[in-house]
Write a protein that binds this DNA or RNA. Sequence first.
DNA 1: CTGAATCCCTGCCGATACTG
DNA 2: CAGTATCGGCAGGGATTCAG
Lengths: 131, 131
Amino acid sequence: MTHQTVGHPVLPGLPDDPRAHAAEPTSSCPVEITLAVLHGRWTTLVIREFLKGDHTFTELSRALPALSDKVLSDRLAHLTETGVLDRRRRSGWPPRVHYRLTPQGRRLGPVLQALWDWGAQQQPPPPSQTP
Amino acid sequence: MTHQTVGHPVLPGLPDDPRAHAAEPTSSCPVEITLAVLHGRWTTLVIREFLKGDHTFTELSRALPALSDKVLSDRLAHLTETGVLDRRRRSGWPPRVHYRLTPQGRRLGPVLQALWDWGAQQQPPPPSQTP
DNA sequence: CTGAATCCCTGCCGATACTG
DNA sequence: CAGTATCGGCAGGGATTCAG
């Protein structure tokens, strides 16, 4: 019938969703919402660490040594505000704060996977160095 | 065997891919590659327009009226450099340049869909205004 | 018609120092 | 331990102007 030969829709979103036809960048667009959550250097790496399990501030700092305290603090606050992380203070001394992914945060796994898959096809993996 | 009850992997990439364990943001990480392509205001909207079909510079300018010529030019150059768009000059007067998605560019459809899906669950769509 | 050049302004990121 | 306060550098984006 048309030039389209594949079986999946090429456009994101339901066809009658007005947000799929926005004429300018708007924070109500679902794509923008997700990109805003992932926005900023280190953000995806932090999420990746949480996909492995929950962490405290210091544990994360050790997992990503080149990430400064200030930016780590910024990222944790941002991801907590956006509902990706759950922040939990444990009483006692020394003070410890545990972070973990919320159910919404866990749903970012497939999103990162989609981003990974596209990028991986752009640049094939380096030869595996099996010792 | 473990605490994991779902059937899909939570981590992006093959487990033995060294890029899945990077300790800092690096341009060789597939996730970073994709985010670099999508980076910048207006970029996803431009890609969306191309998922509908190919366009000339002016057609795009009309589809996204609030997008300035300079930024549109930047976006087209960036997406062409990264292999998402194919640039084709048609001889004659007035000069016209047609852009269209490459096969790699078309593969961004599912990526935008994944971004849309996550964002849509964060903020349900507004009530449809059926006239 | 399709851009490229320039200028200014803003916002992010890193480094450093400090606090409950 | 887990942050906040402050500062400076730099890149992104918009407006305007000019060119092939």
